[in-house]
Design a protein around this nucleic acid. Structure first.
Lengths: 598, 598
DNA sequence: TTGTCTCCCATTGGGAGACAA
DNA sequence: TTGTCTCCCAATGGGAGACAA
């Protein structure tokens, strides 16, 4: 049984008492050990208080989609959120890399056993027309800024959050309340008394009441919670490093939440076990739901911030406009130790999947992988692409992956600039394969960066064997069964792998209608969502014909200045290995387009 | 991480440390709270001791298939083992009701958190030929008796099992060891001393050592475990009612296991949460594995005895030979309170899904549903069918569901006997629909039994809404979209529902080649495995053409004395309701054969 | 202002025999 | 023979100010 806050209804009772078995992750597993609670919310306005508490527990970074808002759902990001596992079948292998969806419902929950907060987001896969509209015409659909960030931060009430010290969690004595916090959140004490004290009653996310003796004593005087405190610590299994959270509502009621210290595996916060389990089961329904055009659920862990797999449409497509490149500076919202929101800046160092960024505050063990839509380029360093190719600034155009023997007419292949020479320094010692396109140059750069200065940054942080997550993998470089029906030298199709995306994947210079398509990596190596999937509008067409059958057809249209043609590539899905860097690969499918630049 | 005992290899280490995530049910969920153990087994013969301990914990009723033995796998029984759940997709809907398989591996495990023992059975779906062989020619494949019951009971070592009393689990004092148990299992004390004592070291299933002070004291003297005992009780979260188990191996080492009191829901022992979860995930792989002819795993909970979903081939097919009917007496192995094996006898009272049996010891709250292959008819009461139809004794022939307007030549439809008149007494008050076939008579009987004498037995024990398990259901009696390509009056096909099976489903009297096919019930009402699925040999052909596509074709061949013909019935799967009693229904498929006897 | 320490003393609970079912 | 009780006393841990960072 989980505490449930329904954002969409104002019913007095929780209308959906989940069947005991459906919440296996949370309660069934420990129901014998934990007391059952009835989670009837107080109808008199305190349900909105719960909402405040939920957001307080979720932290400042949470951005939840609004009911009715358009989003992009990333199945492989979802899979990674769940964690990969040899036993666990990969249900999204045959799905397109991203799925435009409509948020039809958002419910806030909290696990009864662990108090983990999570959101149940119900998504309806959108049909072709509206999808097309969203992605193509940004002007048409001017999404409001508050499609996400549903909870108004300005209204944050009297609240404090304190990370527990060793003394707070020790068996001797209670909880030392910061002075300002106590004065702000707790009812005032009668300071005329010798040792002023009162009983505080605070409700947790499930509506469970906790009683504490609040006393002002000691020399010098301080606010303490004594009786009742250790029971709370024990029941919630709090340890020093976890944080508690008090919140006083407008009606004076006190609410109490917890934020456990992030479970960090290899610098990357992982979602809690109960949420992983919910998503495991949810994920299994996704393929069927999508094929049937039916609503499906995903569970979003606001504390495991590393995997956004539901991204607001606008944010997602906007991030396509922005070209990322090494030496580019950026800013990003992060959560500070005290739970507050900060902005941190950093530098894109590599174009690899591993440690692509360096943060300005070096000692931080912040996650070292970022999503394009999470950051803002800080604009100080000019974009590499726009410098290299003056003709193609931002927007969705950028560095074209031209082949040396097929230079396009605008002479981009031979362009040079301070940026590119500056980065070419690190190329020394690498054999020159004769590739001179800027795209290829960036590739080389990436490798040389790894070798040149990356000694302290090249630890494969995501290759934690113990987790089974994010295993580093070597994608086969072999191209199997190359179909030559598409002329390689003219094909505009290639794999967008994590590096491409992170390094600012750049489509070929066309006037309109280019497309690119992300390649799923090898079937048993889940790709981190931020890097896995980007598809510009027309690709929707492609995956739609792919969807529902093992046979797929891709249409590549490139209306460049010279030629107006359409290449069609088709093939049938059969098991073979994936390819690396160049070539088109679909799921476990045969590689159908060939390597570029060879 | 789970303790693992590999029955098939004698490797010194546990060779397969499951990835942490694959054992979500057991360790990932509580890994933060429970200490990690390394489960390296002592190579010097103690791994066989672990095996003994595992079986001791599993209880006397467990029968595990041997590696290499042929079994029948019942997907819907598996699903029920897992528990149904609206959230949880039903992955076996499209599967045939039973699947002949080969046991390719059996591994014994124990959950680290709960100490639940379970077996991981790897099954390989068998291909047509061998399947045919097993089911058709029993003489050809003479299965050994020890295909199951792998563990030799005779070799049970010095062992005792004691259900914990309130004093044993209280915070004051330790564990009172039964005298004989202490003398049998523990090293002898030096009784010349004033208060003889020693330190006992016992290893649990995971190889973890527990130390206890064993002392002989008190007035009168008794054996006690003091120091260390309460730590054990706390760590294992034992409560009075649970049982502990000490076992002394031939090498003198002491082993220690636990058997928790059965979690009973509505008189039916349910599998532990961790095993349910393992099976949930395993089940999702089953359809794909079967379609690919690949090995899949199932997890068997020896303590949750109610759901056998892997049945030895011979046992399964043998049970087809036996006609069950009301008033029939039977015997069955059960586990007594002290954990020992008993034989209990009972009476088949009803032919319903609910409470079909009455046990001789009335006060027992034993499960009131049985599987045909779990029991032995005790032969005192003659089989109803053989009495009614002298021509068709045991074997697979029995009461033919004849239509009154199509009596067969041997005049069975008009037979009468003491048995049938005796049971017809209770028919008074029921309207006579004019059906006179014995089959129909049994149907009526069943209903009248419910009304006549069943007041204390008609509680639908399996309709526990709280569990979501075993929900009682009313199958629609409507036959939708009857296809008349098969002449109803000549078709030999009809639904075998739970009642038919329990009541001794009887195929029509043909010389050879009849078939019958179980109907899955309504999609959201999982059927209890014992009653769900029975298919005689030729049906394999049918479901194999059904398998893998939504379109199915059934061939009904009945070479009766009069006519030699083959009816083919085909249709396409579409969602519709199931039918009751008569007619063919496949999964959620359209009913293709019509009602018999109307 | 607040984290840690130490002291005080009430409560908890292991360990023993008494006693009875 | 063994389950429960009560007594004894050591261990635990809440609650206070001292003290220092």
């Amino acid at each position: 049984m989980v505490g449930l806050i329904d954002l969409n209804t104002v019913e007095e009772d929780c209308p959906l008492p989940l069947s005991p078995d459906s919440s296996t992750a949370s309660s069934t597993f420990s129901s014998a050990l934990s007391p059952r609670t009835n989670n009837h919310m107080d109808p008199s306005g305190s349900s909105s208080l719960c909402l405040e508490l939920w957001h307080a527990c979720a932290g400042p970074l949470i951005s939840l989609p609004k009911k009715g808002s358009p989003v992009v759902y990333l199945p492989r990001g979802h899979l990674e959120h769940v964690g990969s596992d040899s036993n666990f079948p990969n249900p999204v292998l045959d799905l397109p890399p991203h799925i435009s969806s409509l948020v039809v419902d958002v419910k806030l929950h909290a696990d009864v056993v662990t108090d983990d907060v999570y959101a149940q987001v119900s998504l309806l896969p959108v049909i072709e027309q509206s999808e097309q509209k969203w992605s193509e015409g940004e002007a048409e659909v001017d999404l409001e800024d508050d499609d996400f960030n549903l909870y108004p931060k300005s209204s944050t009430p009297h609240m404090f959050c304190k990370t527990l010290t060793a003394s707070d969690t020790s068996t001797h004595g209670g909880f030392s309340v910061p002075r300002r916090a106590a004065e702000d959140c707790f009812p005032p004490l009668d300071y005329t008394q010798q040792r002023p004290s009162q009983e505080l009653i605070a409700k947790d996310l499930h509506g469970l009441e906790w009683r504490f003796r609040h006393i002002y004593r000691g020399q010098p005087r301080r606010h303490l919670l004594t009786t009742g405190w250790s029971a709370f610590v024990n029941k919630k299994k709090l340890v020093s490093g976890d944080a508690v959270l008090f919140l006083r509502a407008s009606n004076g009621e006190l609410r109490l939440g917890i934020r456990r210290a992030a479970q960090v595996k290899g610098f990357s916060a992982i979602p809690s076990a109960c949420i992983r389990h919910l998503n495991q089961r949810a994920l299994l329904d996704v393929p069927k739901a999508i094929s049937e055009g039916r609503v499906f659920n995903v569970y979003y862990d606001p504390r495991g911030t590393s995997s956004e797999f539901v991204v607001p449409c606008r944010k997602f497509f906007k991030s396509l406009d922005c070209t990322l490149a090494p030496a580019m500076r950026f800013k990003m919202r992060v959560e500070a130790d005290d739970g507050a929101e900060r902005r941190c800046s950093g530098l894109i160092t590599h174009l690899t999947d591993l440690d692509p960024v360096r943060w300005d505050d070096k000692e931080s063990d912040r996650c070292s992988r970022i999503s394009p839509w999470e950051i803002e380029p800080s604009g100080l360093v000019p974009s590499l692409s726009s410098t290299i190719m003056p003709g193609f600034k931002r927007s969705r155009l950028g560095i074209p992956p031209l082949q040396p023997d097929h230079p396009t007419s605008n002479g981009i292949g031979s362009s040079d600039s301070k940026e590119s020479t500056r980065f070419q320094k690190v190329l020394q010692g690498q054999e020159n394969t004769g590739f001179t396109s800027p795209y290829n140059r960036i590739r080389k750069l990436e490798h040389s960066c790894d070798i040149g200065n990356g000694s302290s940054y090249t630890v494969p942080i995501n290759a934690e064997k113990s987790m089974g997550y994010f295993e580093s993998f070597r994608v086969h470089e072999v191209l199997q069964d190359q179909e030559t029906s598409a002329n390689p030298s003219h094909s505009r199709a290639w794999v967008v792998n994590e590096n491409d995306v992170n390094g600012g994947f750049n489509p070929p210079p066309t006037n309109q209608g280019f497309m690119f398509h992300a390649s799923p990596p090898m079937s048993n190596a889940p790709l981190h969502s931020p890097f896995s999937v980007l598809t510009s509008p027309p690709a929707g067409k492609a995956f739609r014909s792919w969807k529902g059958s093992k046979h797929f057809r891709l249409e590549f249209r490139h209306s460049s200045s010279k030629e107006q043609s359409a290449n069609k590539v088709s093939g049938s899905d059969s098991r073979s290995s994936s390819c690396r860097l160049f070539g088109i690969s679909l799921g476990e499918g045969r590689t159908v387009a060939s390597k570029l630049g060879s």
